[in-house]
């Protein structure tokens, strides 16, 4: 056992000595390696800068408006406007009246008046 340990220790010492004496690459080999590198390299083209991928229309529009936060604000404002238009709060004047239109029932006293009949009379 002791002999084996001693033999392995001597082997470790030999490994250590071998590691410290790594052979130098001969000059002619270095030159040959670099000549190969220079010969192979011209076949390579420098990598082209990555072309920006064409973006779909919806993404271009989103970005033109200011991105997702702006789009969110726009959607909220639109929803609020629609809601106010459909069910205006009591303190807001009726937009239909403000525009100068009147309820159709006030125009035609006779609710049963037939538009087709009126038109046919006009044509006669």
């Amino acid at each position: 056992m002791a002999d084996t340990d001693k033999a392995l220790q001597e082997l470790e010492d030999l490994f250590a000595a071998a590691r410290s004496g790594r052979p130098a690459v001969p000059e002619h080999l270095n030159a040959a390696i670099l000549a190969d590198a220079a010969r192979v390299q011209p076949g390579y083209q420098p990598a082209a800068p990555a072309q920006a991928a064409r973006q779909p229309l919806w993404r271009q529009l989103t970005e033109a408006l200011g991105g997702w936060p702006a789009l969110g604000g726009l959607a909220a404002a639109s929803a609020a406007g629609l809601w106010i238009g459909l069910a205006p709060p009591s303190f807001v004047p009726d937009p239909v009246a403000l525009a100068g239109y009147e309820d159709s029932s006030t125009v035609f006293a006779d609710g049963s008046y037939d538009m087709a009949l009126m038109l046919s009379e006009d044509l006669q």
């Binding site: 220079a38 390299q41 990598a47």
Partner: peptide
Amino acid sequence: ANGDSRAAAVLTARLGP
């Protein structure tokens, strides 16, 4: 690969031995 001529020399010095 992008055409740098010095890169080969450094790699050779580093990996060749």
